[in-house]
């Protein structure tokens, strides 16, 4: 606000030496974004108005794919399955990550502890799923072996049955991503000035009170970032489902998440146009989630300044 009295910069001379350097830095990523994100996205929108199978000549069919989507029970069921996944995954993952980050920050700064917490994120998804599926197997897994020992064969839990497989995969992914999310929170915690904590301690505030009135509000920009990226990522769950189920989407239709349905329509049933419409629906849902988060948490501003 101070430089309001200064003469306005010459806006017509945009190609100064400085901006030229800036453009040189931007161009490589701009090219990448254009070729790999912008063009495919626009093409995706276009395809959603056609009956394309990507093999034969497609024709424009207007909003027919969207009409079909509204009447398609599998779409709504897939949306419900995905929502269940998100509702299990996100709350556990976020709360656990925040707790871990607080523990790392207030109790130990050990790099070894941080590395251990981050470790699951470095294991390939395929191995994570195979290891957990073995651990949780109904007949051969140690978890159910223990339950059987304590409460007999009927005390066993069918983690991979139709009812529990989505919560099971959601919890496995929580285990996998919690370290990564915790590190994001941890980085956010480091931006909070220590004087605030010193002042609070002098005032005799309890640890819980400090957390509620200092840490949580000042962590808000990081929380919004974590929530948006993990919510959007969670709605796009696919790889872990594809690895954990044979045939993928099973048992029955228990794990036919929205992304599974898109892949199935596009590449198994040759309905690329309809799959594109499904993808646009998922895109709109993701945008809505991001927008709600941004406006609810006033993401653009910080309480620090």
């Amino acid at each position: 606000m101070q430089n309001i009295s200064q003469p306005a910069p010459n806006r017509t001379r945009w190609l100064t030496q400085e901006t030229l350097v800036a453009w040189l830095f931007i161009i490589p990523s701009l090219l990448g974004v254009t070729v790999f994100v912008l063009v495919p996205t626009l093409r995706g929108f276009y395809l959603s108005f056609t009956d394309s199978d990507l093999i034969n000549q497609a024709s424009f069919i207007g909003l027919a794919n969207y009409q079909r989507l509204i009447d398609d029970p599998q779409f709504w069921k897939s949306l419900a399955i995905t929502s269940t996944y998100v509702l299990v995954n996100i709350p556990f993952q976020t709360v656990l990550a925040l707790t871990l980050a607080m523990a790392m920050w207030r109790l130990t700064r050990s790099i070894v502890v941080r590395a251990i917490i981050f470790m699951p994120y470095l294991i390939p998804m395929l191995m994570v799923m195979l290891i957990w599926m073995t651990i949780l197997h109904y007949d051969f897994g140690p978890v159910n072996g223990l339950l059987k020992l304590i409460g007999g064969p009927n005390a066993r839990i069918s983690f991979m049955g139709q009812e529990l497989i989505i919560p099971t995969i959601a919890m496995i992914n929580t285990w996998r991503y919690v370290g990564y999310t915790a590190l994001l929170f941890f980085a956010g915690l480091q931006t909070i000035p220590l004087e605030l904590y010193e002042a609070a301690e002098i005032d005799g505030a309890s640890e819980w009170r400090i957390f509620r009135t200092i840490t949580l509000p000042l962590l808000r920009p990081v929380t919004v970032f974590v929530l948006i990226t993990s919510l959007v990522g969670s709605f796009q769950v696919y790889d872990s489902v594809a690895v954990a189920t044979v045939p993928s989407g099973g048992p029955g239709d228990a794990t036919r998440v929205i992304f599974w349905y898109i892949v199935n329509q596009a590449f198994v049933r040759f309905n690329m146009g309809y799959a594109a419409a499904l993808a646009v629906a998922l895109f709109i849902i993701s945008m809505a989630i991001a927008w709600i988060n941004m406006s609810y948490f006033r993401a653009g501003s910080s309480d620090l300044g």
Binding site: Q74, G161, Q162, P247, G249, G250, G252, N264, V268, R269
Partner: peptide, 19 residues
Amino acid sequence: GSDIAALVQPVLQDIYDGK
């Protein structure tokens, strides 16, 4: 074939699971 498989698989599963 693939449309039919997508319809039939959940039904087979529900029958087999006794649901």
